[in-house]
């Protein structure tokens, strides 16, 4: 069998078939659309941030397996984290996916994300994996801006 084992390993398929935190939040503190114009992938991220903490996160996505799985893993890991922690995790994940010179190590609590490391081998798919995370950055930014007003 010639399947890209790295790309479609069990963790990714699990999140793809059963995406966590799939849905909408009625009155979110931030709602952001993410679009990948090249492949037409779209997702909407809903965030409820209270006292600097992510109290709820939901996603609706129309995208490929990598995009869906990545968003699902992200939602699971960032739920309950402070905005500051969340920003750090997003930053670390992005470095892991984008650093061409060295392998960025992940701490144990983020080990699920290891499943996405294989996507690095497929340069055109990296943007699929990053779309939810970039959308999250925008969402966290919006939340900060609206609460500081």
């Amino acid at each position: 069998m010639s399947l890209a084992d790295d790309l479609y390993r069990e963790t990714i398929l699990d999140h793809y078939h059963n995406p966590r935190n799939h849905g909408v939040i009625e009155h979110p503190t931030a709602q952001v659309e993410g679009v990948n114009p090249l492949c037409g992938d779209e997702l909407t991220l809903y965030l409820t941030v209270k006292d600097g903490k992510i109290e709820d996160v939901k996603l609706t996505a129309k995208g490929c397996s990598i995009n869906t799985a990545s968003g699902s893993m992200m939602s699971e890991l960032l739920l309950g984290k402070s905005v500051e922690e969340a920003n750090q995790i997003v930053d670390l994940f992005k470095r892991m996916m984008l650093d061409k010179k060295e392998e960025v190590e992940l701490p144990d609590e983020l080990e699920d994300l290891e499943a996405l490391r294989g996507v690095k081998k497929y340069p055109v798919r990296i943007k699929c994996a990053l779309l939810p995370w970039n959308t999250m950055l925008e969402g966290l930014d919006n939340t900060l801006n609206s609460s500081s007003k």
Binding site: S2, L3, A4, L7, Y8, L38, C39, G40, D41, G63, C64, S65, I66, N67, Y122, R125, C128
Partner: peptide, 26 residues
């Protein structure tokens, strides 16, 4: 309901080149 890029990828792994996407016809 498989995303066209996933189909393209699995084909690519079998050394089959097909196109996946909106084909410049949104």
């Amino acid at each position: 309901a498989i995303h066209a890029h996933d189909i393209g990828q699995i084909c690519a792994d079998a050394a089959i080149a097909i196109r996946a996407g909106h084909h410049c016809c949104q």
